[in-house]
Design a protein around this nucleic acid. Structure first.
Lengths: 142, 142
DNA sequence: CTTACTGCAAAGGATTTGCAGACTA
DNA sequence: TAGTCTGCAAATCCTTTGCAGTAAG
């Protein structure tokens, strides 16, 4: 919130700095949950006041960050819009409520000490994606 | 392959039988991996010869099966097309090669004996989705 | 016969792309 | 200045929908 300067000091290497990318960067780094391109777009508008922005620029910035592995893109069950989350060093998983779509973060990755069993094939794992579905405590009563 | 009759005998209850739905059903039940709507469409054409089919019918059939929990729909990382898989009683996970996109099935769900840790929130889990990413033995050399 | 399902074509929504001008390093 | 990046608008791609005709039980 306050130390906006500091956030921009953390600008990743190898990516050309532009005003638009800085905006996307700031929104993502400050976000507490994954955001869609349009949500990012809206937050930038709220922060910067009415500004002439092209949604395509958001998508292009996200693609650049994603290529560098700085952002993870995912499409949740039942949704048709992708969401993007800044990878603060380590990854995170969520439990997604099927009713209100709220995201509840898992305290830790349940896979840290699990070994995979790929039938007979040999496979080198580089990453994984896990989504838990169910009902949050507010919705489970209904 | 041979006992096509048998497959149709397994027709799920509560779903009206139509020629089109039977086709989708057969393709999905025989499939060894998740298929996209268009792949299903193509396989039906191959099996039935050139037939007048509407892709929208495929989507509508899939929606019906999915509602009943008979089919699982997912969108894999980097893809923009959803794939559908018949749930033969139990669910399955895959390791997905980032290079050739091949799917390697996991022998068993690594989640069976793992307990979740949702920070402080209470959450009732009904299902989960797991995707492993990496490189298959053919692609890992490069 | 009644209701649900299908084909067709058009609509929708998210994401991408071509191009000319604007900006970063 | 050279090479990227951006705005704009049009184009794609996948998926959904309205409507009138057709088929299932």
């Amino acid at each position: 919130m306050e130390n906006i300067e500091n956030i921009l000091d953390m600008w990743p290497e190898g990516i050309k700095k532009t005003k638009q990318r800085e905006d996307v960067f700031r929104v993502l780094v400050e976000a507490k949950e994954p955001l869609s391109a349009i949500e990012i777009y809206n937050r930038i508008q709220q922060q910067n006041g009415q500004i002439n922005y092209a949604i395509s620029t958001i998508y292009r910035s996200l693609a650049v960050f994603e290529e560098k592995g700085l952002v993870e893109k995912s499409t949740l069950m039942g949704e048709d819009t992708a969401v993007y989350e800044w990878q603060h060093g380590k990854h995170k998983h969520y439990a997604i409520c099927l009713k209100c779509h709220k995201l509840v973060p898992l305290a830790k990755c349940p896979f840290e000490h699990v070994k995979l069993d790929t039938s007979d094939e040999d496979f080198t794992v580089t990453s994984h994606k896990l989504e838990i579905y169910g009902y949050c405590n507010k919705c489970k009563e209904e």
